[in-house]
């Protein structure tokens, strides 16, 4: 069983929902990435989504784009991100790490080399935003062979047939994009999400997480009522932006803990 599956099993048994915070690796510099990851865990993260910075993050809003630009300006590369995961893994053998990014840095390293290096560094899952299932069959096969879960996105615009096709290609969990838009945007339609998630779960055969646009305890609580996992990213990056380098990890931990408490309240679980 993968580390991701195991986390979801334990959570289900405990009647709790997964909290999946996102940060961009290398923002503001790679030296702070491992401390921030540990702060996320201390604040109550179940899984960490670690963004791999890219020069042209088309699916991201301004906040994550700024994080990418800071990380690249500080010299962050995919190889350095993998080094950070290895360093994190040395002190934490339990928390799954999912790399989230775009195809080109992976293709520049080489798909096979990347899969091997990611596995070796202790990465558990990969979400490549611009790899829809039909464009990455080889990558999916080699990731699967290496025991890496490939996480795919589903969108409000996806059809029921699309739910099935994407679910067949993916493993670990499915990531439902909660709005038509880029990461960090506002205006979630909770009613629509509430109707969609059960339909996706019915065909998914795996947990369904919801992200893009979850900004606070209130929206996390509402989403937690029907999703298996809540992903929160841009708001955490804003927290890092607003902090001094010295205070960033502590502030992030406090913020994540607030979301954790709200999420546990939503299902009546004891913290």
């Amino acid at each position: 069983m993968s580390r991701i599956q195991s986390v979801f099993q334990h959570l289900e048994a405990a009647g709790r929902k997964a909290l999946i915070p996102f940060i961009t690796a290398g923002d503001p510099d790679i030296g702070l990435t491992v401390p921030l990851m540990r702060a996320l865990v201390a604040g109550g993260a179940d899984i960490i989504e670690l963004g791999v910075p890219f020069s042209d993050p088309m699916a991201d809003g301004p906040t994550i784009q700024r994080a990418s630009e800071r990380a690249l300006a500080a010299g962050t590369s995919l190889a350095k991100v993998l080094d950070a995961v290895r360093a994190f893994r040395a002190g934490d053998d339990a928390t799954p790490v999912v790399l989230m990014g775009y195809a080109n840095p992976i293709e520049a390293m080489g798909q096979g080399a990347f899969v091997a290096a990611a596995r070796d560094a202790g990465v558990d899952g990969v979400l490549v935003v611009d790899y829809p299932p039909e464009e990455c069959a080889d990558f999916t096969a080699s990731a699967r062979a290496a025991g890496l879960d490939q996480i795919f996105l589903l969108a409000p615009t996806s059809s029921a047939q699309r739910f099935r096709d994407v679910a067949r290609a993916g493993s670990g969990y499915l990531y439902y994009v909660s709005l038509k838009g880029v990461t960090g945007a506002a205006n979630l339609d909770f009613e629509e999400i509430g109707q969609r998630i059960p339909r996706i779960r019915a065909v998914a055969g795996m947990p369904v997480g919801v992200g893009f646009g979850i900004r606070d305890a209130e929206s996390a609580r509402k989403i937690g009522a029907f999703a298996d996992a809540v992903v929160i990213g841009s708001r955490i990056i804003e927290e890092i932006e607003a902090s001094t380098r010295e205070r960033a990890a502590a502030n992030v931990e406090t913020f994540v803990r607030g979301i954790r408490v709200a999420l546990d309240e939503s299902v009546g679980a004891r913290p």
């Binding site: 829809p132 039909e134 464009e135 969108a155 409000p156 615009t157 996806s158 699309r162």
Partner: peptide
Amino acid sequence: AQGHFGPYGGVFVAETLMPA
């Protein structure tokens, strides 16, 4: 049919745009 010119082309976009 998927927009490939040999190894080039294709549809490398986020899921939100696939239906569009």
